[in-house]
């Protein structure tokens, strides 16, 4: 294959992601040496009975960061190609806001996050919210051709749902409000036991559906008319994009809170680094890059002793990337 450099990039980012995962297992307020960590992962015991739980906790966080970062980056990439806008993403377009509204309705409505009803309710509400916004966006995108206007519409959705959430605050109890606000800061923490693995498997399964989007995405760079002439079933592709991006965004938002910047920034860098235009390579590289970035952010959060919220870290890393992309695009004359 021609693109040896891209294969190298894929392997490189995969290795980086795993290294960061290992690093996240090793770092922490409690010093546990690497040999003991390997022991514990294999099911052994350590001198302090809490360490197995600590490693399990760190592992769960890492799995969630890996999956969540990958899912958001993947959604962002797909949305950018679909809406032909390099600034599109699950956050900017208001999709994660829709999911947040769903979450707010459940939490502020008084159903606790840890109860089973709460869990199912949260996922459903999050998905309904995310898909709702996405469908509205699609309808509107048919009516307006300017992609900048679409971004503004997405931002307006974001503001609108935030306002609705503020209204919900009026009726909520103080502890529910606090629970929601803490959730809103974003965190990869919170899953226990084997839940991290389930999360990973769930995200991977949905992400694998993107294999059906390889050809459509490859063709959509020329626009919908050309894509259609190349044999792409636009209706089916549109539906698949809504489902995949909507569910991935919803699931990550429900469990991690609204995490910003990964969805926009990662696809930017990847489009710059990867030479191949075949989404067969672009999609997995984007996923892994998102995983790596999320793990890096989680490590930073934990090293700061949880003083820095997750969204602050992702913004610190992501915002400069976006600005740099805009400047670079301006230079090459490419259209925003």
């Amino acid at each position: 294959m021609k693109n040896n450099r891209d294969i190298f990039t894929l392997v490189g980012i995969l290795v980086a992601a795993f290294c960061l995962l290992g690093l996240n297992l090793y770092l922490g307020e409690v010093r546990i040496n690497f040999g003991t960590i390997v022991d514990l992962l294999g099911g052994g015991t350590a001198e302090n009975a809490s360490w197995s739980y600590t490693i399990e906790n760190r592992l769960n966080r890492s799995l969630v960061a890996f999956s969540g970062g990958g899912a958001l980056a993947l959604s962002g990439l797909i949305l950018q190609v679909f809406f032909r806008n390099p600034l599109a993403g699950p956050g900017v377009l208001g999709i994660s806001s829709g999911a947040s509204l769903g979450v707010a309705t459940v939490i502020l409505g008084g159903v606790g996050m840890s109860s089973l009803l709460g869990n199912l309710g949260l996922i459903s509400a999050g998905i309904i919210g995310a898909l709702g916004v996405l469908i509205l966006l699609l309808i509107i995108s048919r009516l307006i051709s300017s992609s900048i206007t679409l971004l503004v519409v997405g931002l307006m959705f974001g503001y609108f749902t935030s306002s609705l959430i503020n209204v919900l605050f009026q009726w909520a109890s103080e502890s529910d409000t606090r629970e929601y606000v803490i959730w809103g800061l974003g965190s990869f923490e919170g899953l226990n036991g084997k839940e991290g693995w389930f999360f990973l498997v769930g995200v991977l399964m949905i992400s694998l559906l993107t294999v059906f989007l390889i050809k459509p995405l490859n063709a959509l760079v020329l626009g919908t008319s050309y894509a259609g002439s190349l044999g792409v079933n636009l209706k089916r592709s549109r539906l698949l994009i809504i489902i995949i991006c909507g569910i991935l965004t919803a699931v990550v938002t429900v469990y991690c809170g609204p995490v910003s910047f990964i969805g926009i920034a990662v696809p930017q860098i990847i489009r710059f680094i990867v030479r191949s235009k075949n989404h067969l390579l672009i999609l997995p590289i984007t996923f892994l890059a998102g995983s790596a970035l999320a793990l890096l952010a989680d490590i930073t959060v934990r090293l700061s002793g949880n003083a820095l919220p997750l969204n602050t870290v992702t913004a610190l890393i992501g915002a400069p990337i976006i600005v740099w992309t805009i400047i670079r695009m301006n230079k090459t004359g490419a259209k925003v």
């Binding site: 922490g28 307020e29 409690v30 809490s50 360490w51 760190r58 934990r302 002793g305 949880n306």
Partner: peptide, 13 residues
Amino acid sequence: QIHTQEQVWNDGI
């Protein structure tokens, strides 16, 4: 004082 959970777990033993 703000500690991480894992630190207090370590001490709670």
